[in-house]
Design a protein around this nucleic acid. Structure first.
Lengths: 193, 193
DNA sequence: GCAAATATACTTACTAATAAGTAAAATCAA
DNA sequence: TTGATTTTACTTATTAGTAAGTATATTTGC
């Protein structure tokens, strides 16, 4: 596939994560790449098609990660930590999560983008819940609420953790990450501090 | 004070909570109010001054709420629940929290707005932590991590809870709200379901 | 008490910049 | 030379913001 197209997708995603969907323009992309505005429109006729493609790429990347972890037979603890590492990386790079970013702008997005976003969130939440449930049965995690609720709590913490970290400073996210593990770690590790 | 000015502030806030800071324009405000664009600029010369005023109003409203609860000698449980009720209301109205909304767009905001946002988040987090600490000492709450960390976890859940609820449906937030209470409720009420 | 000055709350009518998007011509690579 | 890619050169719409004017109160000087 075209390297220009790939680069546009990459830059578009970065802009969503740093400036928000309504905070960037095709100009931002074209000038950063040293091409013309119309070249971006050649690959993505409208901002909506770009946005939808970025979301689809994200979901695909997530599936690849999950598959990869299965192939390497990561246990559930390791799987969840790998997922959280994506957020730690975001935090280091002063980015927020695409869910939080587009969640803010959702009322200004086209129907296809909204649906794609919803599909993505449902998939991720489902995976977290599933991983939590399996891990709990193995004794890797300990929590008392339904795994769907626990998954929602974890994703919420991660999503808003990045946003708050951008307001208060990067160090903020460390505490969020730690609290999540303290929340679901088995009893023997709990309150060890 | 001018009723027009008040109405602009109100509408501006609503637009930030529904469409995001970069997703609304002065036109949105003026047409909704049946006045001209320039009339909005009369009260708020720039979008930045409007944004900063909205944040200041928010902080002021928060202080009034806290003071009011102190006057009515609410216990810490009642205080925290009142604070969370603000988020339940937001959820009913399909809005998100101003922290999450502006947290997304922070890199596109002016310095004064960023600082005002930071001040606001610090104040709210401080209040939650303080309230949690007092309540824990009275036996109203139970949690093992530092109250600052617990406060951060609660605020994260609330902020992203609203965003996720807008993606997945309002019912989502109920689970978030419930999980928070299950997290910090004293042992006698825990796991009662 | 009353005219003159002034402040308040706007509207009209702009500007300059930027937004997304397009048609057609030019370039490039096989 | 053919098709993919990219630029040139636009359009149309919207953005934040401004300058100048107007009607209506409100205050001030005498």
């Amino acid at each position: 596939m075209s390297v220009t197209r790939e680069k546009i997708l990459e830059l578009g995603e970065e802009l969503i994560l740093t400036k928000g969907y309504n905070g960037f323009s095709y100009q931002d992309i074209s000038t950063a790449m040293g091409i013309k505005n119309a070249a971006v429109h050649y690959y993505f006729p409208s901002k909506e098609t770009l946005g939808t493609s970025i979301l689809k790429t994200n979901r695909q990347r997530f599936e690849e990660m999950v598959e990869n972890m299965q192939n390497r037979s990561f246990d559930e603890w390791h799987q969840l930590e790998s997922f959280m590492k994506l957020y730690l990386k975001c935090n280091r790079e002063n980015k927020i999560c695409i869910i939080g970013s587009l969640g803010t702008d959702i009322n200004t997005l086209s129907e296809p983008m909204q649906q794609e976003l919803q599909k993505m969130v449902e998939r991720i939440l489902g995976w977290i819940a599933e991983t939590l449930e399996k891990g709990r049965q193995k004794g890797l995690f300990r929590f008392n609420i339904p795994s769907n609720d626990q998954a929602l709590q974890i994703l919420s913490s991660l999503v808003a953790g990045l946003q708050l970290a951008r307001v208060l400073g990067k160090h903020t996210f460390k505490s969020v990450h730690q609290s999540i593990w303290e929340e679901i770690s088995p009893i023997e590790n709990k309150n060890q501090q």
